[in-house]
């Protein structure tokens, strides 16, 4: 079977299995126990998947197009079909339409979407009380909030600064155009995988890990942000390296320069401005993340926020939110101006 047929069958199989499984729950059983029966549901999914894939194969064989075929069919085959068919008469249109309809249906269902809750009198009063507190911030707390946001800003700074040299070195080792020998490619794959794993673990989780490791506080938060920054920056840096133009590389190599000299003279000048731009953006992100990380024991303004929120002291929470909002707005604007100037 051709590569695109396999992809197409997997796509249509998953689509079909999803549609059939949702229909199954709607028609036969929507009790909580039925949802929790993972074993039976997996079997159903596999069964539905096979049925759908088989059906899709048959449909495509007959000359009608499924959504999977529409997406994965090679360009040269696409170019051959000239006559236009009304969308309403195609299989793929109904397949995608049904998918959207089912997805919205399930989404509203599982999020308990309800206008009555939103407009409920008691709940509404609670919200008004909260907003009333927030809009009358307790200014006595301001000095303490400022001290804590300063801690957060420095947490973000140090985590970014420590991540830069590590990410810089690793980014060259994880750029495809530099790591082109077989041995180097193994290192490339290893690093790319490591970065993906490091990034897929949220900074929030890293903060929990480090708050156990080094104790609750800014140090744990800084380490968490640093790990996350290394992975993100290295990935962004290496993607920039992969887009450099080959001309200067050839030019420098043709002088008899070594690989390291080539990187330093041909690649670094091309990437240094985008690197700085991405780094400033990362610092900006880290300030916002440092706040969130504080919520789980990363120290700084976030930790302060969660303490007052837990005691429902809304006036104090109002002060903290005001300080956070101001700093985030300021950093956001400043970093935008800086990055614009560096273009």
């Amino acid at each position: 079977m051709k590569g695109h047929t396999v992809k197409q069958l997997i796509f249509d199989g998953i689509m079909g299995a999803y549609l059939l499984l949702v229909s199954w729950f709607m028609l036969f059983s929507s009790s909580p126990e039925a949802f929790l029966n993972l074993n039976q549901n997996t079997q159903l999914f596999v069964l539905f998947f096979l049925v759908s894939a088989g059906l899709a194969y048959f449909i495509n064989k007959k000359g009608y197009k499924t959504a999977g075929e529409l997406i994965f069919e090679p360009a040269h085959k696409k170019a051959q079909q000239l006559e236009a068919v009304s969308k309403l008469k195609t299989i793929w249109f109904w397949e995608l339409g049904l998918f959207l309809f089912f997805t919205f249906f399930v989404a509203f269902e599982v999020t308990h979407f309800s206008f009555t809750e939103l407009l409920d009198k008691d709940g509404f009063d609670g919200a008004i009380r909260l907003f009333n507190g927030l809009s009358h911030p307790n200014m006595d707390l301001l000095p303490k909030a400022v001290v804590n946001i300063v801690i957060t800003i420095f947490m973000a700074f140090l985590s970014t600064a420590l991540a830069i040299p590590i990410a810089f070195v690793l980014s060259f080792m994880s750029a495809k155009n530099i790591m082109n020998s077989p041995a180097a490619f193994a290192v490339y794959m290893l690093l790319r995988t490591a970065f993906n794993i490091m990034r897929s673990i949220e900074a929030l989780i890293w903060a929990i890990i480090f708050s156990v490791w080094v104790g609750i506080g800014p140090f744990a938060g800084m380490l968490a942000l640093m790990i996350h920054s290394v992975a993100s920056l290295a990935k962004q840096y290496s993607e920039i390296i992969e887009t450099v133009s080959d001309g200067p590389i050839e030019g420098i190599l043709s002088t008899g320069a070594s690989r390291l000299q080539m990187i330093w003279y041909a690649i670094v000048p091309q990437v240094v401005l985008p690197f700085i731009s991405f780094t400033i953006y990362r610092w900006d992100i880290n300030i916002r993340m440092a706040t969130i990380i504080g919520l789980v024991g990363g120290g700084g303004i976030g930790t302060m926020l969660i303490q007052y929120q837990g005691q429902a002291m809304w006036n104090e929470v109002g002060t903290i939110i005001l300080v956070i909002a101001f700093v985030v707005w300021f950093m956001d604007t400043a970093s935008a101006y800086l990055r614009e100037a560096l273009k």
Partner: peptide, 9 residues
Amino acid sequence: FQHFNLIPR
């Protein structure tokens, strides 16, 4: 080279 291949910066 055709495109000179200097380091522009």
